[in-house]
Every structure is written in C-alpha cells, then in structure tokens.
C-alpha cells in the first residue's frame, strides 16, 4: 500500500551544544513506517544548523519570536501554509508553546494539525506550580519557592539548606552554595529568561529522564527512560542509555493517568540513595534525545503525528534496554549565498 506523503513543519533546529529537539524529531519522522514526509523547517535564527541540513529538511522559513505576538506568528504561518500546504506542525520549544496552543483551534480550521498539551496542562506543570502539582497528583517533588524580587532572597535561609537550585522559568539552572551565589544566579538567569526565578531544594542522587507520549485521555502511548552518561557543562546529555525501571514507568503512568496529558513530554527525575524518585521538572515537549526512543523501537514523533491527524495509534509497550546514544558535533561547509538567503529573505 502506498504511504501518504505529509508536509510537516518542525521547529527547534538549533542542533547546538544545548540542542533543540527539531533535528532528532525529523530523523524520527524520516524513518516513519506509516507515512512519507516533506519536512518544512521553522527557524528563529539564521545560524540554526538544521536550516543547512538539506538531506533532512526540504525547505526552511524563519518565523518571529514568541514575543512578537500570536497574530504575527499566525500571519507567518498563513504565508508558509500558502506555499507548503502544511498537514502538521510540531513545535519543540517550551517558550513557543503558549502561542501555538492558543493558535491550535485556528490552525485546525486551516487544515493544520498539532498534538499539544492543553493550556491548563501547560500552565499546571510549570516549574512555578510544581509544588501544587505534586500535592494534587500525589507525586514527590522537591520543595520549591517562586521569587519575583531579589530583596526576598535572604528569606530563603530559614526555608532551604545549601546547596539549592536556582532555576529560570523556561531554561537554565545553577547550584548555589551561598546567598551571594543565589543573588548572582538570580540576576544572571532573570536577565536572560525574565522573572520569576524558582528556588528548588537540592536532591542528592542520580538524574534520569523519561520521554513519552500521552493520548490526552490518560493513556501512555509510549515511554522510554534514559540515564544520562555524559553530561555537558550546561547539564545536557551528550550520551545516554535506555534503562528498564518499573518505578519510573509507574510514575510516568501515574502522571499521564492523573493529568490526561496530551502530547509529547520529558520528565526529569532524581533518584536518591534510598531509591526514592522525585520529579524535578516536566518539559511539555519532546526532548533533544528523542532519537534514542526511535532507536530502541518507539518512534514517538511518528505516533505523535498520527494522533494529531486523529488516527488510531497502538500504544508502544516494549523497547530495547541498554541501547546508547552518543551525540557528536559536525562542521558543515555552507555557501554564503545560503546564509544570505535565509538571513535576508527568511526562506531557504
């Protein structure tokens, strides 16, 4: 039977030292068994490496930053859609999810499908709300506090012991061993990502991640746990291995059952020396290491697309344990004309 050909737009093409998930998502889509693809890249910066990976991405269009507003983004998508007849968009950044979730009904009327968490799910799992989230759903989370003002930093001494984690609302986290360091990270992270800043209790242990897919009805469509083996100075996994841990899968099932999560996700977990699991963060999108899930037998990007199109999808129940991913960097030689094209005309 001939496979349908889908036009799928993907963001997160910044395959850099702190990589966006786009290129890995695209590799999964290119290997999909149920459809063929034409991949449309959507980029924010002219030097996002994915733009120049012509074997993976057929054409790239620049799109406005989320700060430009939802209408500006919609206008740009309407233009891209007029050229490319998009079937599906897969946004891959936390910061762009808010406008895309808002646009989902409108895009659907245009024939463009997405499979995103609801606005309620997106807001509820936010780092700022993690304490309440843990209480509501009976999931262990480290104690945290939200700070809007540098002058309130001193109050932390009575509530937290050192070290403590200083986190940005979207990205970035640093371990602080003194109030001076808390202040320094507060300023540094808030300058980049804005307020609030989240202070989180430091849990000693080993960090694990689970990526997966929820169908929006409480079912686990896919889930693969991974242990980071090689971590960059930005805390990103540069190598990892798939593992088999029933406790992690049980926590993932509980998270999905209770929240009825819709879409891809990544759970950041910490296991302490007693084997207790803490949920540190819920990323509302697929992670940069998603190709490991594809490599161990769960093509989550493919399943996500089929769910977005309203197709019946059989949940994945198995994956290969002990498979590793080892990331590498690669220098592409790019003609200046291509850089000019994407920089000046926003298309390549």
């Amino acid at each position: 039977m001939k496979k349908p050909k889908l036009n799928i737009a993907v963001t997160g093409l910044n395959a850099i030292d702190s990589p966006g998930p786009g290129v890995s998502v695209i590799r999964g889509l290119r290997e999909a068994a149920s459809f063929d693809v034409r991949i449309i890249g959507m980029s924010y910066e002219s030097l996002e490496p994915g733009i120049f990976m012509h074997d993976l991405i057929d054409r790239t269009y620049s799109i406005p930053y989320p700060t430009a507003g939802t209408n500006t983004l919609l206008e740009r998508i309407e233009y891209i859609h007029s050229r490319e007849k998009l079937d599906v968009i897969i946004p891959n950044f936390d910061a762009e999810l808010y406008p895309f979730i808002k646009l989902e009904p409108k895009l659907k009327t245009m024939g463009i499908h997405m499979f995103l968490p609801t606005m309620h799910q997106f807001e509820e799992r936010h780092k700022v709300n993690l304490n309440d989230f843990g209480k509501k759903y009976g999931i262990s989370v480290p104690k945290s506090k939200v700070l809007y003002d540098l002058n309130t930093v001193h109050s932390l001494v009575s509530e937290f012991s050192f070290p403590m984690i200083v986190k940005g609302k979207f990205y970035d986290a640093s371990i602080a061993y003194s109030i001076e360091q808390v202040k320094s990270y507060f300023n540094k992270i808030s300058a980049k990502w804005g307020l609030p800043i989240i202070i989180q209790e430091f849990v000693h242990g080993t960090e694990f991640n689970v990526t997966g897919l929820g169908d929006g009805k409480g079912n686990m469509m896919a889930a693969v746990p991974m242990r980071k083996q090689y971590i960059t100075d930005k805390g990103k996994a540069w190598g990892g291995i798939s593992i088999s841990d029933e406790k992690m899968l049980d926590m993932t099932r509980k998270f999905l059952r209770n929240t009825k999560w819709r879409g891809g996700f990544e759970l950041e977990l910490m296991k302490n020396k007693d084997g207790e699991l803490y949920l540190l963060e819920i990323n509302p999108r697929l992670p940069a290491w998603i190709y490991l899930a594809v490599g161990v037998g769960q093509n989550i990007p493919e399943a996500l697309v089929n769910l977005a199109l309203g197709k019946k999808v059989k949940p994945y129940s198995e994956y290969a344990v002990g498979k590793m991913f080892v990331r590498y960097s690669w220098d592409m030689i790019v003609d200046r004309a291509e850089f000019e094209q994407i920089s000046l005309y926003g298309e390549l």
Binding site: T206, M226, R227, I241, S242, S244, D245, V321, G322
Partner: peptide
C-alpha cells in the same frame, strides 16, 4: 556488567 535498572556499567 550492565545493570538495566540503573543504566550503570
């Protein structure tokens, strides 16, 4: 030796 629960080798 590979421990599949912890991912340690």
């Amino acid at each position: 030796l590979f421990n599949p629960v912890t991912g340690e080798s």
